[in-house]
Design a protein around this nucleic acid. Structure first.
Lengths: 123, 123
DNA sequence: TATCAATAGTTGATATGTTAAGCAAATTCC
DNA sequence: GGAATTTGCTTAACATATCAACTATTGATA
């Protein structure tokens, strides 16, 4: 992930914040539980990450009337800006990885990691 | 690594502290640079980890006269005790993983991870 | 419907990851 | 042999991981 960190160096975003934005960009606004699953972040970490992203104008948060326990997170304007400015570079990094490792090996790796995760479903 | 954490729950050790003990147990005393490589810890993290392990009586630290920049880390008595008390359980956890994932897949996974690390040698 | 249990998030404490800056001892090199 | 560089380690600052405890809602149920 070092290349991603380099990409984000100028923006002040962390990898995890970037992941939050990407998930929201892909699936649209969602509540914190799902967001934490999709982004691979623990709920307690996500709480704090969203807080700092809100004060940085990267995301918005609102409580739906249907269930006032929930927090629905969405992309804010500065978040949209960061996404637009870095999407291409991120794709390039991903392609570069695929090229260097090889399509086949990358897929094998992902499969094996998934199998590993299922050995102990807590993760 | 969750099972390892469970194993250590009673001891007050962290995964990383356990890794430090295991490396020292396998290779004997060594300086901090090598220890950080072998245990997969950043030098700055290792500094703090060794400090807290020293105050917990898990490891010792001394400066060799030949190079007074170095810190040679060794196992202290309580560290030896923790090792002895958990070595078997740790082996069992490793075997269990090998069984569940399969010898072949585990090896493939390790190979692929190594290849991945070499794509970007910074890690 | 009053209670109890489950769900969704939050917070606090502690440990590590990451980066940058800094210090002291050893090495290099003119 | 002394300035400049490199090496080995440490510290500081900030972010996340992990676990436990806690609040507020909602849902279930007797």
């Amino acid at each position: 992930m070092a290349p991603i960190r380099e990409m984000l160096a100028g923006t002040g975003l962390t990898e995890q914040q970037w992941r939050v934005l990407r998930v929201l960009d892909e699936f649209g606004p969602m509540d914190a539980s799902r967001l934490s699953r999709e982004a691979g972040l623990m709920a307690s970490s996500l709480t704090r990450i969203v807080q700092s992203m809100m004060t940085d104008g990267l995301v918005t948060r609102e409580t739906p009337a249907s269930d006032r326990r929930r927090q629905v997170i969405g992309i804010a304007s500065r978040g949209q800006k960061v996404l637009v400015e870095n999407r291409d570079a991120a794709l390039e990094i991903a392609e570069n990885l695929r090229d260097r490792l090889g399509e086949r090996d990358l897929e094998r790796l992902l499969d094996l990691l998934e199998a590993l995760a299922e050995v102990d479903p807590r993760n």
